[in-house]
């Protein structure tokens, strides 16, 4: 009995804890740095892992002496805009490809899947030129229009899986009772696919919130940046130590996605595994 307890500690609890410490330590470090006063941060003779004088001075500096507030506003606006645009396209595309077996639907399904594989690194240079020609440079619209290029394929693929799981008989019944195709979509499929739509919503919002490359390239003035880009470009200023405000910003920028995620974690995991299984 003792032997098996020892074995399970060695082969299970020990590695599990090692993983958790490894995966969570950077977040702990983010938090501790954000609340330690400057005179402790840069004094190596003190215990670095703890502080007995937590302070909010870094948050104060971040919120009132940097452009963090407009960055937050921009990030929110762009993430919401891109998510709404992408999802309204994806719902119809997924229904059409999955349920209306129209001419070319198979090819379109594959094309949407393939477009999901194209990494932004291949696209950002030509896109910069296109954004410039469309007069969208340094505007939120540049990102609201380009983020759907990775959101639509993902959301469509995820929703196709959901639509597939809804029995066709339900649709047939409604059709026999005289419902139009649009009514079937609105009154039968959409309500049943709501969990899928919610997952797609969460995914799209987090992906947009986290995006870095396009935001770095297409936005240039300090006030129009998003949190991921603004923090890294405006707060790393050569010799001046800004680690406190920087970690405070990293923390505040991570909290919204972590919160959304924790509320919908079941959906998130189900959606993710569903999308991978498809």
């Amino acid at each position: 009995m003792r032997r098996s307890a020892l074995t399970s500690t060695l082969t299970f609890y020990l590695p599990l804890w090692a993983f958790l410490v490894l995966l969570l330590f950077p977040f702990y470090w983010m938090l501790v740095t954000a609340v330690r006063p400057n005179k402790e941060l840069y004094n190596l003779s003190l215990n670095q892992l703890w502080t007995s004088h937590p302070t909010l001075q870094h948050f104060q500096k971040l919120l009132f002496a940097t452009h963090f507030a407009p960055w937050l506003q921009n990030t929110m606006l762009i993430a919401l805009g891109a998510t709404v645009l992408a999802l309204s396209c994806a719902v119809f595309a997924a229904y059409a490809v999955q349920r209306l077996r129209f001419r070319g639907s198979g090819v379109i399904g594959v094309a949407i899947f393939l477009s999901y594989l194209v990494p932004p690194v291949i696209l950002f240079i030509p896109l910069a030129r296109i954004i410039n020609e469309l007069g969208l440079w340094d505007r939120p619209a540049a990102l609201i229009l380009t983020y759907p290029t990775f959101l639509i394929p993902f959301a469509t693929w995820l929703l196709m899986g959901y639509f597939k799981s809804i029995p066709v008989e339900l649709e047939d019944c409604a059709r026999i009772d005289g419902a139009t195709r649009v009514q079937v979509l609105r009154h039968i499929l959409l309500p049943l696919a709501l969990p899928g739509i919610l997952s797609a919503l969460i995914f799209s919002f987090t992906l947009s919130w986290n995006e870095y490359l396009y935001a770095l390239v297409f936005l240039s003035s300090t006030g129009s940046k998003t949190i991921p880009v603004g923090l890294a470009t405006e707060l790393i200023t050569g010799d001046v130590f800004q680690w406190g405000p920087l970690m405070a910003g990293a923390l505040l920028g991570s909290v919204p996605v972590a919160l959304i995620y924790s509320f919908f974690v079941e959906h998130y995991v189900a959606g993710l595994t569903g999308a991978l299984k498809e």
Partner: peptide, 23 residues
């Protein structure tokens, strides 16, 4: 269903064509 299908995929394809396929 052909016409409806094409109409429904058009917005998605338009965005992917302008901001993904073209670039």
């Amino acid at each position: 269903h052909h016409a409806l299908g094409v109409m429904m995929v058009t917005p998605a394809l338009l965005i992917l064509a302008i901001f993904l396929a073209y670039p």
